[in-house]
Simulated assay, not measured.
Amino acid sequence: MEVRNVSKQTVHGISARTNNTAEMSPHGKIPDLWQLFDARVPVDYQGGERVYGVYYNYESDHAGMFNVLAGFDGASFPSDITLEEITIPDGKYLVFVERGDMPQIAIDAWTKVWEHFTRDDCPHQRLYNIDFEYYANGNQIEVHIAIK
């Protein structure tokens, strides 16, 4: 993991409101959200477009409600679905990188996030304003956690 200063990025996609307890159950919304996004939003990977998972509108901390948006940084929007827009702000982020096969790399990256921030000697403090996943390609994920 490393600390990075990230420039703002606008992302368009589809969102849902959920919490971590729901996502640990069979009734989690995030898998269905990604299935809908993959089925309805054409992403031009060859043209340089990339996919993001954005976490925002945190009610409190890891135990509260939050919004998650499955989105992309492209400019060609499907006509049969309305996409929401969110801007990831400039800021300091702690970045966790995983490589391998999906969806296991996402699970592994978030496991490292939870382990890091629950340590008694954790040197970083989460802001709980906006966090995001960046999919550089089909075999790499970067989880960006906003920190003070």
Rank of each mutant, 00 (worst) to 15 (best):
E2L: 09
E2I: 03
V6K: 09
S7A: 14
K8I: 00
T10I: 14
S15F: 04
T18H: 03
E23R: 00
E23V: 05
P26S: 03
H27M: 12
H27K: 05
G28M: 02
G28E: 08
P31H: 01
P31E: 06
D32C: 07
W34P: 09
Q35I: 06
L36E: 15
V41C: 14
Q46M: 12
G48S: 06
E49P: 12
R50H: 15
Y52D: 13
Y52A: 04
G53R: 01
V54E: 11
V54M: 06
V54H: 05
Y55K: 00
Y55S: 03
Y56M: 01
N57C: 12
N57R: 02
S60D: 14
G64C: 04
G64S: 04
M65C: 09
M65F: 09
L69C: 03
A70S: 07
D73P: 09
G74D: 10
F77M: 14
D80Q: 05
I81L: 04
L83K: 00
L83T: 06
I86L: 10
T87C: 07
T87I: 02
T87Y: 05
I88F: 12
G91A: 02
F96K: 01
F96A: 02
E98V: 05
E98L: 07
E98T: 07
R99Q: 13
R99I: 08
P103T: 01
I105W: 11
W110K: 00
W110C: 05
H116K: 09
F117T: 02
R119P: 09
D120R: 03
C122M: 01
R126E: 08
L127C: 10
L127S: 11
Y128E: 07
I130L: 10
Y134K: 03
A136K: 15
A136G: 12
A136Y: 12
A136T: 15
N137H: 12
E142Q: 08
V143K: 01
V143H: 04
V143T: 10
I145F: 11
I147K: 01
K148V: 12
